[in-house]
């Protein structure tokens, strides 16, 4: 069974993980953050999860609602623990929200030849991106603390991008295919596809 590690289970990662719950894969969640009330507007967390670590909360929700067993690490991923936490991963899913963490994952994936797919959404909620690491360059932030999608007004678009990401993960787990996609408000377009032996 493949081990799929979600790095960051906030707006994109939490929804994508829920949509991957039927995969024949071991789902693993890494996130140091806690569920706040504002997160209920845009992330896949429910009210009883308030105050809990996001990784632990998502693990509990999958078990309680769907009977799915996952693993959770409620820690901040950094240089000191990236090797330990990701060394057994068959696929790493980057749903982090900042360049520094995305770059950390890219370095790990390159060094260890670990499949890594990145996902992100623009601050205005009109555009999403799913791209494999071999074609990925982290976008620079215009300003520190650039707008996020915390308010919930972009929830449908978050769901759209998370769905495309989940399908991308599914295709990789099932067949080894690596598809990139861009997601606009009205369409999702495959921009690159590489079939590999999974």
């Amino acid at each position: 069974m493949k081990r799929v590690v979600f790095c960051g289970v906030g707006a994109l990662g939490s929804h994508a993980a829920v949509l991957c719950r039927n995969l024949a894969a071991q789902l693993v969640f890494i996130d140091f953050d806690r569920v706040e009330s504002k997160n209920l507007l845009s992330q896949a967390f429910v009210k009883p999860s308030l105050g809990k670590n996001k990784a632990d909360a998502l693990k509990a929700q999958l078990l309680n609602f769907f009977g799915i067993k996952a693993e959770a690490f409620g820690v901040r991923l950094g240089e000191d623990n990236v090797e330990v936490l990701l060394k057994q991963a068959d696929l790493v899913v980057d749903c982090f929200d900042n360049v520094k963490s995305r770059t950390l994952l890219s370095r790990f994936a390159t060094k260890n030849d670990t499949p890594l797919v990145h996902a992100g959404i623009s601050g205005d909620g009109t555009f999403g991106l799913v791209r494999w690491d071999e074609r990925f360059v982290a976008d620079a932030e215009d300003t520190e603390g650039q707008a996020t999608c915390e308010g919930g007004e972009h929830l449908p678009m978050l769901g759209f991008v998370a769905s495309v990401l989940a399908r991308t993960i599914q295709d990789f787990v099932v067949s080894g295919e690596r598809r990139d996609a861009i997601v606009a408000l009205t369409s999702a377009t495959v921009t690159n596809a590489t079939a590999t032996v999974g």
Binding site: C7, G8, G10, A11, L12, D31, F32, D33, R76, L77, F96, D97, N98, V99, K100, S101, G120, I121, S122, G123, D124, T126, F127, G128, L129, R135, A138, D139, A140, E141, D142, E144, G145, Q146, A147, T148, C149, I182, T191, N192, A193
Partner: peptide, 29 residues
């Protein structure tokens, strides 16, 4: 906006002009 350049499956050159997707940066995870 970001300019990405790729070669398509049929060898065609494709240029993508798209918004950035840093998705925040308020907190590191």
């Amino acid at each position: 906006y970001v300019v990405d350049r790729f070669t398509g499956p049929a060898g065609e050159r494709r240029i993508y002009l798209r918004p950035k997707v840093p998705f925040g940066g308020r907190r590191s995870a």
